[in-house]
Structures are given as C-alpha cells and as structure tokens.
C-alpha cells in the first residue's frame, strides 16, 4: 500500500509535467491546427535559460521570469517565421517544419549554452514530506500545483475573458472571427506566446528534480503529444487528464512490471486508446466532410 502511494506520488509529479506540455500542445493545436513538435524545446529553454541566468547571479524568481519571457519570444518567432509562411500546407509538411524547428532550437541551445546537464536548487528545500504512508518532495508539490494552477488559469482565461473567447473564436473559424472584428493575427501570436510560456514554466518547475540538458526536449515532446492524444487532441481537460494518467501509467509500470519498459507501456496504452477510441478520451467525434 505504501509502495503504491509512493508510485502514485511520483507518477503525479511526472504526469504534471506531461500535462503542462500537453496543455501547450493543445493551445497551439486549437489556434492553428498545427501539432507543434518543438513543444519540448520550450521546456528545455525554460530550464536552460533559468539555470544560466541564475548562475550569472540573478535571484531565482527573476531568472525564471526572464526564462519564461525569452521562451515566449521564441514561441512567437516560431509562429511568425516558420508556421505562418506555411499556412495551408499538408500535415506532412507541417510535421517536418516543426520537427525541423525543434532540431534548429536544440542545435542553437547546444551552441549558446553547452552540452552539460544542469540543475537548480529546490524552491522550498529538500526535506521530504510524509503523507499517507509515503514521502513526497516539496518540489513535486510545486510541479503538481503549477500544473493545476495553469489549468485553472487557462480555463478562466478561455471562458471568462474577452481575449480568451476571441482566441477560441479564431480557432473555431478564422474567417468568421475576422468578420466580427477579431485581430486573428494577434490571437495566433498570443497562442504561441502562451504555449511557449507554459512550456518554459514546466521547465523551471521540474529542473530541480530531473535536471536539464539541451536534448531533453524530444522525449518530452513525444510524451506530451501522447498525453494530448490520450485525452483527446485540442481539449484542455483532456490534456490535463491525459498527462496525469500517462505519468501514473509510467510510474506504476516502473514499480510493478519493469522500469526498462515503462516508456513502452505508455506507447502501448496510447496505441490501444487510439484503436478503441480514435478521438481520445475527451475528444469529440468528428465526421469528415466530402
């Protein structure tokens, strides 16, 4: 029982990171119908920039803010320079563009920063908290709390604010949104900035636990993508649930079956979900127009 609780805690921590990546995916997918394979690089940038500005002597909160801001700028640049010019291109081209962009960002990071692994100090100490017969690191609570906070924030933004509703309108029908006076170009910029900022935040929160290096992005992008799929592409609730579920699956597999194959099980679960419910858990059924 104690072991189970322990696995659940570690699963929720990892799952929260996947959920943040998946939420970032969801925002960009909703706004532009693009699956952004460079999403994992935002997490990497968030972690790396924080580490380097922090080591340069800035206080941690300021370093984190700078990292999130710079990463948002990278997100906006990605949209302006790579996604916007290829509007209307087939899915294969868009996949290659975002994968190309992710390789580019990784290559740039390895030149600007370095190829070492880095870590940050935990925000509130390393004293484990005893809870329900298991222990959890305070930093894990930061990660889980961060994911929940971002989710609630996004929910309120999209349902309670005019700007949020304008983003949804743009996602739903770009032309119609333009006709009612929405600045759709700005909404796209905003979506990419927001998505990159969330990715960077995930990087800041998780670096004290898992370390950061220039090449952590690929695995995170794949997991986050898988999580978004699991929950149903384009659905923020699905992204959160998919991320947490994926983290739990991995942790339980690592604990009870084989730690080598924990990532395999994640992909097996995803394949199974795709076969049984091709739209994911929360996705809506779509019919194709002829």
């Amino acid at each position: 029982m104690d072991a189970l609780m322990q696995f659940i805690f570690s699963g929720l921590t990892v799952g929260a990171v996947y959920a943040l990546v998946a939420l970032g995916f969801t925002i960009i997918y909703n706004a532009s119908d693009v699956v952004n394979f460079a999403q994992g690089e935002f997490v990497m940038l968030g972690g790396m920039i924080t580490v380097f500005t922090f080591e340069a002597g800035l206080p941690l909160p300021l370093a984190a803010l700078i990292a999130i801001f710079v990463t948002s700028a990278v997100g906006v640049a990605l949209n302006k320079l790579a996604i916007e010019p290829a509007r209307g291109a087939p899915v294969v081209s868009l996949i290659i563009i975002t994968i190309g962009a992710s390789i580019f960002i990784r290559g740039a990071a390895q030149i600007v920063f370095d190829k070492q692994l880095h870590r940050l100090p935990s925000f509130s100490g390393d004293e484990p908290i005893h809870m329900l017969g298991a222990t959890i690191l305070p930093q894990s609570l930061w990660v889980i709390g961060g994911a929940l906070l971002v989710f609630v924030g996004l929910y309120l933004f999209f349902t309670r604010t005019l700007t949020g509703k304008a983003v949804l309108a743009t996602a739903n029908n770009r032309l119609a949104a333009q006709l009612v006076g929405i600045n759709t170009g700005f909404m796209m910029t905003l979506s990419f900035a927001l998505s990159a900022a969330i990715g960077a935040l995930a990087g800041v929160l998780v670096t004290p636990i898992t370390l950061v290096g220039y090449d952590i992005g690929v695995a995170l992008a794949l997991k986050g993508f898988a999580a978004a799929m699991l929950g149903g592409m384009g659905n923020p609730k699905g992204a959160l649930a998919g991320g947490l579920l994926l983290g739990l699956f991995e942790a339980l597999t690592a604990g009870y079956i084989s730690s080598q194959y924990k990532e395999a099980v994640a992909f097996i679960v995803i394949l199974a979900v795709l076969f049984v419910m091709p739209q994911g858990i929360f996705g809506e059924k779509k019919t194709e127009r002829v």
């Binding site: 563009i97 190309g100 390789i103 580019f104 290559g107 390895q110």
Partner: peptide, 17 residues
C-alpha cells in the same frame, strides 16, 4: 560539427516553406 543540427533544422524548415 557544432552547427550540424542547426543547419539541418534550418534546411528542413526553409525547404518546406
């Protein structure tokens, strides 16, 4: 060698656009 990834990524994006 340092710039290999950078150039590869750039080529992928530019050709597709």
């Amino acid at each position: 060698a340092e710039y290999e990834q950078l150039v590869l990524g750039l080529i992928m994006v530019l050709v597709m656009i």
